[in-house]
Computed example of a mutant assay.
Amino acid sequence: MSYPQPLGPEERLADAKRLSGLPPIVVLCGSTRFMALMSEAEVRETEAGRIVVKPGVDLKSAQELRSDPVEAAALKARLDELHRAKIRLADEVLVVGDYVGDSTRAEIAYARSLGRPVRFTHPGVDPGA
């Protein structure tokens, strides 16, 4: 007699979201130089009935917190890990902007490795196309 395998954390999260009736969750990815475009995308996605998660810190803007290069590098590493957690939480990814740098390319690859659908505001920048 075989017994069902226990669900892993990803499956438990998907079940919990489905059972709770949550709307789809979309995470916005892209260079923080596109923060204004991300805000516009947030409005469109919210109007479409999706929960939107996006970067919370713009590393491109000058702030005293990032004046020390060692602290700035550590902050970037923590923010990258946090954004990967947002990708795991999301049902899909929306890449914003007409440029895809190394960090965004890595986020796209990570999302696709998890089986998350990836959409683009500018489809011509899809590194997988």
Results as ranks from 00 to 15, higher is better:
M1N: 14
S2C: 07
P4Y: 03
Q5R: 14
P6F: 10
P6Y: 08
L7V: 02
G8V: 10
G8E: 03
G8S: 07
G8K: 00
G8W: 04
P9K: 12
E10H: 13
E10C: 01
E10F: 15
A14F: 01
A14Y: 04
A14Q: 11
A16C: 13
K17V: 05
R18F: 01
R18P: 04
R18C: 05
S20Q: 01
S20P: 04
G21N: 03
P24K: 05
P24F: 03
I25P: 00
I25D: 00
G30R: 00
G30T: 10
G30V: 01
T32G: 04
T32Y: 00
F34K: 06
F34L: 02
F34G: 01
M35Q: 11
M35Y: 11
A36K: 13
E40N: 00
E42Q: 03
E42V: 02
V43I: 02
V43Q: 10
V43W: 09
R44D: 05
T46H: 04
T46P: 03
E47N: 06
G49M: 06
G49V: 05
G49Y: 07
I51Q: 01
I51A: 08
V53A: 00
P55S: 02
P55K: 06
G56D: 10
D58N: 14
S61F: 08
Q63A: 15
Q63T: 14
Q63R: 14
E64R: 12
E64W: 13
E64T: 12
L65E: 15
L65M: 10
R66K: 05
R66V: 12
R66L: 15
S67H: 15
S67M: 13
D68Y: 13
P69A: 09
P69G: 06
V70Y: 13
V70E: 13
E71F: 15
A73T: 07
A74K: 14
L75A: 12
A77P: 04
A77G: 06
R78W: 11
R78A: 10
L79T: 03
D80W: 13
E81M: 13
E81Q: 15
E81D: 15
H83S: 10
H83R: 14
A85E: 15
R88Q: 09
A90P: 02
D91W: 10
D91S: 11
E92K: 01
E92T: 06
L94M: 14
L94Q: 05
G97N: 08
D98S: 13
D98V: 02
Y99T: 10
V100L: 09
V100C: 14
D102S: 12
T104H: 05
E107K: 00
E107P: 00
I108D: 02
Y110H: 07
Y110Q: 12
Y110W: 06
A111T: 02
A111M: 07
R112M: 05
R112S: 08
L114C: 03
G115Q: 07
R116Q: 06
R116A: 01
P117D: 02
V118K: 01
R119A: 06
F120W: 10
F120Y: 13
F120P: 09
T121S: 08
T121D: 12
H122A: 10
P123N: 04
V125W: 03
D126Q: 05
D126S: 09
D126F: 01
P127E: 04
G128R: 03
G128A: 11
A129M: 05
A129R: 13
